[in-house]
């Protein structure tokens, strides 16, 4: 069978589907000072599955932690229009479960084009393999 670390190199999704892969990728992102990208990506996935009674509070928590401060790594990588859309949704009593979808897609794009290829070339990954 293919060892997990070779699977990680197939696609970002293969990497994010494996606990150990996530751990190593997160360590790499911590070194680079951008672990928030990964945490935000998982927060968006979790948000969709969150029960309705927790959703409004969680939307505020995600917004405050990653988006409201324009100098944060996540906020800097999300388009202005997407941030405005999220700001409008956050104020609603029953936020749409898909309200972070566009932002998640944008952050995934950053990881696919930037941090994920760098990870595969990093000492951390190469030493692991």
């Amino acid at each position: 069978p293919t060892p997990p670390y070779l699977k990680w190199a197939e696609s970002l999704h293969s990497l994010l589907d494996d606990q150990e892969g996530i751990q190593l990728f997160r360590n790499f992102l911590c070194q680079e000072g951008c672990a928030d990208l990964l945490d935000f990506w998982f927060a968006c996935s979790g948000f969709r599955k969150t029960s309705q009674e927790k959703r409004a509070k969680l939307a505020k928590a995600i917004y405050r932690k990653y988006i409201v401060d324009g100098s944060g790594i996540v906020s800097r990588q999300i388009k202005g229009a997407t941030k405005s859309f999220i700001r409008d949704c956050v104020g609603k009593p029953h936020p749409d479960p898909a309200m972070f979808e566009q932002a998640q897609t944008e952050i995934q794009g950053v990881m696919e084009e930037n941090t994920y290829p760098l990870f595969l070339k990093s000492d951390l990954y190469l030493e692991y393999t």
Partner: peptide, 20 residues
């Protein structure tokens, strides 16, 4: 604020793959 952080952590963990 603490409970908001807890909620966020719980949300992130819920989205991670389970042990295989």
């Amino acid at each position: 604020i603490d409970s908001e952080d807890d909620l966020l952590q719980e949300c992130i963990s819920s989205a991670m793959p389970k042990k295989k």
